[in-house]
């Protein structure tokens, strides 16, 4: 029986290759983390002819944990991403999803009719409609002619 075989002598190499792969994958993960080092939740703002639209990515928030407020031109969003009851920390093999309580405030421009805000929550996306205020109608100003 051959004690030394060429084929097997490369095994260590394959192991190294696997190790490097794993390392690179973990680097990739840190980049993912960068996505969340910014303000949470990330929002996009769109403009439509009659309204502004805010879209926020809030996966995993239960509707009852979501709180939207409007006061003095500031829109407040508050929520929490929680693990179900009885989830113990040491049983996690991997933990990448953001967790905890979050809060974000967004200033709303004056041109928004704050009395008619509405919001929908579907598939972990929060969509807030901000209807535009009636544009101030140009008025004629009578000019009195002095004699």
């Amino acid at each position: 029986m051959a004690v030394f075989r060429w084929g097997h002598s490369w095994d260590a190499f394959h192991d190294l290759e696997r190790e490097v792969d794993r390392l690179l994958q973990s680097v990739n993960m840190t980049f993912q983390g960068l996505r969340f080092s910014r303000q949470y939740p990330p929002v996009n703002l769109y403009e439509l002819p009659d309204e502004y639209l805010i879209m926020a990515e809030v996966p995993g928030v239960r509707p009852e944990d979501l709180e939207l407020t409007i006061a003095s031109g500031v829109l407040g969003m508050k929520g929490r991403c929680v693990e179900p009851e009885g989830t113990s920390e040491e049983r996690f093999r991997r933990q990448e999803r953001p967790r905890g309580v979050w809060q974000r405030s967004i200033s709303i421009p004056d041109r928004v009719n704050v009395d008619n805000l509405s919001a929908e929550f579907t598939n972990g996306m929060l969509k807030i409609h901000l209807p535009k205020a009636e544009a101030a109608v140009a008025r004629q100003i009578p000019v009195a002619f002095g004699s």
Binding site: R38, Q39, P42, V43, N44, L45, Y46, E47, L48, P49, Y52, L53, M55, E57, T122, K127
Partner: peptide, 13 residues
């Protein structure tokens, strides 16, 4: 569900 013709003003995702 972004309506057609919506103009993107600010983007974070």
């Amino acid at each position: 569900s972004i309506p057609e013709g919506a103009k993107l003003l600010h983007q974070e995702f």
